[in-house]
């Protein structure tokens, strides 16, 4: 599924994409050029807002921080660093011919 042109992504920011089944994916571009995709729903609030979190790092690990209650989620694994028992699903994402796709 096509998300958007790669140019639309901005470093250290996220966007949200709607999937045909109505679910949502948050897609992030980090400063080193890597693209990550996680479930957009923040498990702590239930709101579909992870794509609007601040992207950065904790101890060198790239994370997004939920804008609701500020828990950090590891971009590569979806693991919540503040509550190790919680995680969000990771989605496969690639960039092909300048287009970002979910696989």
């Amino acid at each position: 599924m096509i998300v958007c042109d790669f140019d639309v992504l901005k470093p250290e920011q996220g966007v949200a994409a709607l999937r045909p089944d109505g679910s949502q994916v948050a897609v992030f571009l980090t400063a080193d050029g890597t693209v990550h995709a996680l479930d957009n729903i923040d498990p702590f609030s239930g709101a579909a807002v992870l794509s609007r979190g601040i992207v950065g790092d904790r101890g060198g690990v790239p994370v997004v921080v939920s804008p609701v209650y500020k828990q950090a989620f590891e971009l590569a694994t979806g693991k919540c660093l503040d509550e190790p028992s919680v995680s969000v699903a990771v989605h496969q994402v690639r960039v092909r011919d300048g287009v970002v796709e979910l696989t």
């Binding site: 599924m1 096509i2 998300v3 958007c4 639309v8 966007v15 949200a16 994409a17 709607l18 109505g22 949502q24 897609v27 729903i41 498990p43 702590f44 609030s45 239930g46 709101a47 579909a48």
Partner: peptide
């Protein structure tokens, strides 16, 4: 949504309370 501009977020819904719209609590 970057791939569907103008489509509203399907997780958001409202109910009425005292004559106004308030959020339906999300299935957390």
């Amino acid at each position: 949504f970057v791939n569907a501009p103008g489509v509203p977020d399907p997780t958001i819904s409202f109910r009425a309370e005292r004559g106004q719209r308030v959020p339906v609590s999300l299935g957390i």
